[in-house]
């Protein structure tokens, strides 16, 4: 599988990353070499192997429906770039 420069552009747009022309070239090349390396796995015989949903051999980890204390509004907003009257303040959305 080869990744095209257009795909890199598209994914960058979805991730809100601004890439220069040169960066697009570099990332296309790097992503392709990563994919080539991962393609080694294609050589394995995976017949009869269930697709894996998780790396750990764990299932059904639950918590009880019991309320725990939340943090204060001041702490919640402590790292916010901008806040007003207890709200996170964000720039124009659309």
């Amino acid at each position: 599988m080869k990744i095209s420069k257009e795909q890199v552009e598209h994914v960058a747009m979805l991730a809100r990353l601004e890439l220069t022309e040169a960066e697009q070239e570099i990332y296309t090349e790097q992503l392709n070499s990563i994919l080539d390396y991962a393609a080694l796995l294609d050589k394995l015989d995976t017949q009869g192997v269930e697709p894996m949903a998780h790396a750990l051999p764990l299932k059904n980890v639950f918590r009880d429906d019991v309320v725990q204390p939340s943090i204060s509004q001041a702490r919640a907003l402590a790292n916010a770039p901008d806040a007003e009257e207890g709200f996170f303040k964000v720039p124009k959305i659309v």
Binding site: R63, D65, V66, V67, Q68, P69, S70, I71, S72, Q73, A76, L77, E85, G86, F87, F88
Partner: peptide, 20 residues
């Protein structure tokens, strides 16, 4: 009573950013 992945209350209303 609580959110899906944490113990914060699901109660409606409440001052903004206090059930977090």
């Amino acid at each position: 009573k609580t959110k899906i992945f944490c113990g914060c209350t699901t109660e409606f209303g409440g001052e903004q950013n206090t059930h977090v």
